[in-house]
Every structure is written in C-alpha cells, then in structure tokens.
C-alpha cells in the first residue's frame, strides 16, 4: 500500500494563539525596524559598509522569521509548509548571490566575506529548519 492509499482529512486543529502574543511580536518587529532605521543616521554610518550590511542583514532575517513563524503560523502549522518555502529559499538565495557576484556586485569585497554573505543566511535557515524539521504538528495519522 502506498501513502496515497490512505487519504486523511485535512488538518483543522490549529493551536490558537492569543492576540496578546501577536501584539508582542508586532512590538518586537517595530523595535527591530526602529534599529534598522537608526542605522541610516550619519553617526552609525561611521561603521564600515561590511559591518553595516551584516547588521542589517541579520535584523532582516530575524524579522523575516518572526513574521513567518508567528504571523504566518509556520511555528504551529504542519511542517510541510515550512519545508516548502524554506527549502526553495535555501536553493534560490545562493544561486542569486553567485549570479550577482559573477556579474560584478560588490567588486571590491574580500572573497571570503562574499562567501560568508552567500552562505551564512542559508546555514542559519537550514539549522533552524533542521531544529524544527518535524514541527509540532507532524501527527498526520488518519483520524
């Protein structure tokens, strides 16, 4: 018997999260955005471009995952949705980076910094994906 021989009803049992959790997440996101905007001021621009890009990229990734995990319910939903979106991005991001570097983006940058910029986000995302690979809602046995 194959898996397709056991169709099961679509999951309809969400872990309901209180509104207050969403409000707290929104406040965290607003705070992170405020930090990002703060980096625009000239005083912070004394940072090297490399460091500024690393700080901004980290904040961007953290915000992205807060929205995806809580607002888009990936933290509570079936793990297949997470696999679907993150696996695609894990493949796409380095491909676009290689393309961009090959076409001359950031020509003066050290090659190891470029490799780090290309590899760190997929590694962090991949680690998170492995950590939460099965997800809390993996029990898709027939009801």
């Amino acid at each position: 018997m194959t898996a397709t021989a056991h169709p099961v009803e679509a999951e309809d049992h969400h872990e309901h999260v209180s509104d207050w959790v969403y409000i707290k997440i929104a406040l965290i996101l607003a705070f992170l955005t405020a930090i990002e905007v703060f980096t625009y001021f000239e005083s912070v621009h004394k940072m090297s471009d490399e460091l500024l890009i690393i700080v901004l990229s980290t904040l961007m990734v953290v915000k992205f995952f807060f929205v995806a995990a809580y607002f888009m319910h990936l933290k509570y939903d079936n793990a297949i949705f997470t696999k679907m979106i993150v696996a695609g991005m894990l493949i796409a991001y380095p491909v676009y980076c290689v393309f961009a570097f090959a076409m001359g983006w950031l020509p003066g940058w050290n090659v190891f910094v470029k490799i780090g910029l290309m590899a760190i986000p997929p590694i962090v995302a991949g680690a998170w994906l492995m950590f939460d690979w099965n997800g809390p809602k993996e029990d898709t046995e027939a009801h």
């Binding site: 056991h6 169709p7 009803e9 679509a10 939903d77 079936n78 949705f81 679907m84 898709t140």
Partner: peptide, 14 residues
C-alpha cells in the same frame, strides 16, 4: 471528497 488529502494538510493552503 474535498476534505480528503493524502498529505494531511489542506490543498488550498498548500
């Protein structure tokens, strides 16, 4: 059956 799915998740959401 629109609610039956071999993956156990909603087709629309997937």
């Amino acid at each position: 059956d629109p609610h039956a799915t071999s993956l156990g998740v909603s087709h629309e959401k997937l």
